[in-house]
Computed example of a mutant assay.
Amino acid sequence: MVQIETFSVESWMDEHETKCTHNIAETCCASISIDQLRELSEDKDRQIFQTSKALTYGAIRGSEDLRSNLARLYSARSTPLPLENILSTPGAIQANFLCAYALVGRGDHVICHYPTYQSLYEVPKQLGASVSLWNAKPENAWTPSIPDLKSLIQPNTKLIIINNPNNPTGAVLKKSLLQEIIAVASEHEISILSDEVYRPIFHSISPVDPEFPPSLLSMGYKNTIVTGSMSKAYALAGIRVGWIASRSSSIIEKIVEARHYTTISVSQLDEQVAAYALHQNTIHSLLSRNIQLAKANLAVLEKFVDKNDETCEWVKPLAGTTAFVKFHIEGKPVDSVDFCKRLIEKTGVLFVPGSECFGKEFKGYVRIGFVNNTEVVEEGMKKVTQFLRKEFDGVKLAE
């Protein structure tokens, strides 16, 4: 029997997200409807759904329209990415699962960037691999070190997993660090899986910055796999469309074989919506909407942290939709589970407790998902400030 650990963050959300009034734990950019998506398009007469098309399994590896639009996003000027090197999946969580399922197993070793989304390191464990965590620390702006990475390499290391931009910290692995990761991996012929679901929500680092992180797929190392999704950056979690892309045909074919045993294909209707959203007539307006929302809401969150600096601290995120904020009383970290439970009970505001959902060592930390609708974030953070003034002394300290 496979040993499956509780998926803490998803269990927390499942238990609490339908009971809150202000969801500031959700990691998607504020979700939009089909009607709103059409309004963002420059060609509002273009059909989203082909309603005359028979609802078969569709194209097993993903529709041509969807994969063409994705190929355009990943193609450098000199090195286009073929459609055949992209697979659609039911969300990025399935994409990441399939990569592990196809590439690692019993007797293998995996290195995973940490803290991060739990499935990235738990699924390889379930498949029988041993996993070493490559720790990022707040004193280094949540950037892990290359010497630490080198120290984790073993003769049986098959895969290095990174999450860029990072959930929960909002940090990015910058260009020079990515180059160093590739150098380490290539020396040992190790594949790299880069979970890029929060790309391209870059709200606090400019594309003209020399350290701006490109997609790992564009950096010249063939044994690279990237995953993405319509859920986070594209505000369309409800269509359950993700993808896997690699410049290695052999890696893609291994994943194709694994995929046949799982989902077979993705809903034709979902893929049509995704293709519409990623079309050149729509994608620029959609991303502009989401990046501007992230910038506006980050300013709200930064004001909150500055106003309450006697009780909380952070490393300001550079990208994505999440921030990792540490709460303390007279310098001692609070019990983040007790804090989050009291907060939702008294105010209706939902945060995610870091020590419960990202690792016991993250005492006092909560993950805040700040790219909901601005009024929700503004009202919610006002309620949190009131809670800190009136109720915070009653919160337990971390043991």
Rank of each mutant, 00 (worst) to 15 (best):
Thr227Leu: 06
Ser176Cys: 04
His260Ile: 12
Leu318Cys: 11
Val377Phe: 05
Pro168Ala: 08
Glu302Arg: 14
Gly170Val: 09
Glu187Val: 09
Pro333Asn: 02
Val2Ala: 10
Leu287Cys: 04
Pro333Thr: 04
Cys99Gly: 10
Ile244Cys: 04
Val377His: 00
Ala183Ser: 15
Ser68Gln: 05
Lys396Ala: 04
Asn297Trp: 06
Cys312Leu: 13
Trp314Met: 12
Ile329Ala: 10
Leu40Thr: 10
Val197Gln: 11
Ser267Phe: 11
Thr385Gly: 14
His22Val: 03
Ser285Gly: 08
Asp14Ser: 14
Leu83Cys: 11
Val172Asn: 01
Ser249Arg: 10
Pro82Gln: 00
Glu302Gly: 15
Leu193Ser: 02
Ile255Asp: 06
Thr347Gln: 05
Ser250Pro: 08
Thr116Trp: 08
Tyr276Val: 09
Val352Met: 05
Ser130Met: 13
Val337Thr: 12
Leu55Cys: 13
Leu133Asn: 03
Glu399Gln: 00
Ile182Gly: 03
Phe339His: 01
Thr321Cys: 13
Ile251Glu: 00
Arg240Ala: 15
Ser33Val: 09
Gln126Gly: 13
Ala274Trp: 05
Gln292Asp: 14
Thr282Tyr: 08
Ser176Asp: 05
Leu66Gln: 06
Tyr234Leu: 15
Ile368Phe: 04
Leu388Glu: 04
Asp65Asn: 14
Ser8Gly: 02
Leu287Tyr: 07
Phe212Asn: 01
Lys307Gln: 15
Val352Arg: 01
Ala100Thr: 06
Lys332Phe: 14
Leu149Tyr: 05
Gly238Phe: 06
Lys363Thr: 12
Leu37Cys: 06
Asp335Lys: 00
Lys19Ser: 13
Leu298Gln: 06
Asn281Thr: 15
Tyr276Cys: 10
Ser229Asp: 02
Met13Tyr: 13
Thr21Val: 07
Leu70Glu: 03
Lys383Gln: 10
Ile251Val: 08
Ile205Glu: 01
Ser249Ala: 15
Glu42Trp: 11
Ile205Trp: 09
Thr157Cys: 03
His188Tyr: 14
Phe387Leu: 02
Ala59Tyr: 10
Ser75Thr: 03
Cys312Ser: 10
Thr157Glu: 00
Glu356Met: 06
Cys112Ser: 11
Ser75Phe: 04
Glu196Leu: 12
Pro333Trp: 03
Cys99Asn: 12
Ala183Tyr: 07
Val172Glu: 01
Asn96His: 05
Leu287Arg: 02
Phe97Arg: 05
Thr321Val: 13
Met1Leu: 12
Lys382Ala: 13
Leu178Lys: 02
Leu350Arg: 00
Val366Tyr: 04
Leu173Gly: 03
Arg38Leu: 09
Thr51Ser: 13
Leu37His: 02
Ser249Tyr: 07
Pro317Ile: 11
Gly58Phe: 06
Ala25Gln: 01
Gly394Lys: 05
Glu356Asn: 07
Glu378Leu: 10
Gly128Ser: 06
Gly58Cys: 07
Ile329Cys: 10
Leu83Val: 11
Glu64Trp: 09
Phe324Leu: 11
Ser288Ala: 13
Cys29Gly: 00
Val184Arg: 01
Glu189Met: 11
Thr79Met: 11
Trp12Met: 00
His16Gln: 08
Ser249Lys: 10
Asn373Tyr: 12
Val337Lys: 02
Tyr117Glu: 10
Asn164Trp: 08
Ser63Phe: 06
